[in-house]
Amino acid sequence: MPAAQNTSARPNRITALFGTDVPVVLGPFGGVSSVELTAAVSGGGGLGSYGLYGYSAEAILTTAAQLKKATAKPFALNLWIPTGDETPSIPKEEFDHYVETLKPYFDEVGLPLPEMPHRYLPDYDEQVAAVLEARPAVVSFVFGVPAPELVEEAHRRGIVLVGTATTVAEAVALEAGGVDAVVASGMESGGHRVSFLKPAEESLIGTFALVPQVADAVSIPVIAAGGIADRRGYAAARALGADAVQVGSAFLATRESAAVPAYRAVLHSPAASETVLTRVLSGRLARGIPNRVIGELSTTAGTAPFPVQNWLTGRFRPQAAAQGNTELMSLWAGQGTPLIRHDSAADVLAELLSGGEILA
């Protein structure tokens, strides 16, 4: 076995906590997680993760069963904690206004305009109950600190809990709340900025400034996330005090992910060198590769609040993906995306772990 593999596979606090072989975590994706990719990362010795945004309790149990069939290794399920700023409903006339704003995109993909739903998100308590019933090795959270009773019940069932912080204060709050490890998510990360103590725009700290500060501030293991796509990012994060790294975009670009071929092609293209932070696709701040829909919606009079906007654009985005129309998709990606060189999960893992050679 190469020296890099030996160095990277040394037991540490994260591998002991998760029961994994190597300190690499797959970033959970909302909408593009796949059983195949999650199982591939877990089977390769890391911790595969699966994002459950928008999943009903029944879908969660079905997905967990599929994951357990696909791998006998530990994996994580990821939940979005309600922050309290969600808009559960809006007046019908307001809904119709936002739909009319998006009408050109529904027309372009050949879909009828959507009717106003009874609710925009599944019930969080029902999701929690399903996750506890599924009993994965790890449950990770974004947008907050899990409730004390959830922490107690998860630990009673032997489930490890991971929180996500975008600031030192959030990391401290998560440790005080009883989670077992914390992801230090720098502003370079793709997808939604998961801040919860202050607005996301006031919590934009870079990964390599955030990680050492979090490592100094908490006693629980720290997982670095944001801008890490190759051996150099792995080595730098570990040198700064991270017990492990969490990687999203590099795994999203692999053939095992649920991203459609056109999306993966963009991740491997020069277009990935530019990302923007925007609220126009979901109503919450998120980082992605700019395209026509982002540009056009950025100039409109207003965007529906979260989760209404995410639900509305989520009606035409999947159809656009099925058609290979990347101009109407959410192309979430981190700032390290131009570093991507591989198209299989195994090769991404090998690339990251070879960073142990730098540390040796």
Rank of each mutant, 00 (worst) to 15 (best):
L77E: 06
A217Y: 04
R10V: 14
W332H: 09
I289T: 11
I90D: 09
G283W: 04
G334H: 07
R119Q: 15
I223G: 01
Q127M: 13
G19W: 10
T62S: 15
G336F: 05
W332Q: 11
A209L: 13
I90R: 03
R135Y: 02
S282I: 10
P212H: 04
I294A: 08
R193L: 07
A253H: 00
T15K: 09
A72M: 06
A16D: 15
A304N: 02
E175V: 05
G227R: 04
V247N: 01
G324T: 12
E170V: 05
E296L: 12
L210G: 01
I14S: 02
T300G: 06
E36N: 11
R232T: 12
L285I: 14
A346P: 00
T326K: 03
A70I: 12
V247T: 05
A333D: 05
G45M: 08
P91E: 14
L79Q: 02
A72V: 13
G46V: 01
G48P: 03
I90C: 08
L328T: 01
V280T: 13
L111W: 06
S203R: 03
G45D: 08
A286W: 02
V280P: 03
M329V: 02
E36W: 04
A239R: 10
T15R: 08
L328S: 03
L297T: 06
T7S: 14
L102Y: 03
V194I: 06
Y120E: 07
